[in-house]
Design a protein around this nucleic acid. Structure first.
Lengths: 215, 215
DNA sequence: CGGTTAACCGGAACCAGGTTCCGTTTCGCT
DNA sequence: AGCGAAACGGAACCTGGTTCCGGTTAACCG
């Protein structure tokens, strides 16, 4: 008797409401692209040519609105995981980590927000299942330490995506060097050559960009 | 003829002003301990038994106030760096990274804010100098790959401190395992045993804590 | 000491942005 | 056409950072 959530209306929307919902989503995507998470609900309403009240009936909070905008990204990450299962070789895991990170780097959303969004949990579980398979394969093929567990890979992805976020504007490829380093380890031994480091002249800008100030 | 900044008054403060400055700093430290970066200036003023206007004359913005509170942490990190120079062995670098991370874990400030604070730049340079020495020694002693550069260590510290921040409440030691992993690498080979992973029952909470929602 | 004044004080007012409220309008149905 | 539920819009509200300004006071001078 009452519509519960924006992501799963329990009854048909009235024609005008449906039209406005589309407009709101379109406007939100637009504003989000421009401002990232700093987008203002007022601005979204303006783009959608709608009152703020209308936005808020559909999305009770700014956070819900963000969830809706972000929703497709979960699905796309899952698809990367599934694609990396296709070849049964041992490097699917590494391929997945690289692809997923590159994909993440391409859009501007902090991974904490991406995976904290409502509805992310179920997708996360599916990705986890895929990763367990990838991990097993990598161990079988001898490309991964036996004592590494799923958790470690998750933590690794957290650190790498945080790095991506901090350096997107100033050194958008630095995460690749760091990932290579983590895969091989910092100790001397049988290693592959690393990608180039950031040129010294650029480094100060990289540092400045990562260090933020409040508000 | 005009006092420029709170961190370096160019003339003596009037007695009442000096007293209030102390109170404000004390209050700010207190409130910051309780609320982290969400502390409100109004609350600081209340603790200091002072009007907001008084706080704002001393610290033109909330950010400046935070800088003042955070200032001692820079110095302490530098001291860790200097202490790790004392022994001329090859493991000073690793010791420094571990100590500095542990120190960082002990207080609640995101490292981006810590190092973005005004006045951090000079300390950073001193720490960098120390790290260059530590890196050289580690390479000479054969405990560090030859192709690793200063930048890599900085990036490593960024990722590890971000991890610390994300897991402080739920898995405050997980960064140690991850650091061990990064030092040795994820590939099979001559490795040392890792610290335990997070127990499965706890893991969901760790994940939930890291994934934040907007506002 | 009283007078003078620049420095200082407090808190009301302002502003921005998220959220709520409610009188008005519109859709969908009979 | 008439009716009620659903939807609309935007003014009003709230929180928290920041600014403003009339009143107060420390410090110094005659």
């Amino acid at each position: 008797m009452r519509v519960e959530r924006a992501d799963g209306p329990s009854h048909e929307l009235r024609q005008d409401a449906a039209r406005n919902l589309e407009r709101i989503l379109a406007g939100a995507r637009q504003v989000f692209d421009e401002c990232g998470t700093d987008f203002s609900v007022e601005e979204v309403a303006k783009r959608a040519e709608v009152g703020v009240g209308t936005v808020y009936r559909r999305f009770p909070t700014k956070c819900d609105l963000l969830d809706a905008v972000v929703f497709p990204l979960h699905q796309q990450t899952l698809e990367i995981a599934q694609r990396s299962l296709e070849s049964p070789s041992g490097d699917g895991l590494e391929w997945f980590v690289r692809q997923a990170t590159a994909f993440h780097a391409a859009h501007g959303l902090p991974s904490r927000l991406l995976w904290g969004a409502a509805g992310a949990a179920t997708v996360r579980k599916e990705i986890a299942a895929a990763m367990e398979v990838l991990i097993k394969r990598a161990k079988d093929f001898g490309t991964l330490r036996e004592d590494v567990v799923y958790q470690d890979l998750v933590v690794l992805s957290w650190t790498i995506t945080d790095l991506v976020e901090a350096t997107r504007r100033t050194a958008p490829r630095i995460w690749e060097r760091h990932l290579d380093l983590v895969l091989d380890g910092l100790r001397p031994g049988p290693i592959r050559p690393l990608p180039a480091a950031v040129p010294a002249v650029k480094w100060d800008r990289v540092v400045a960009e990562r260090h933020e100030r409040i508000r």
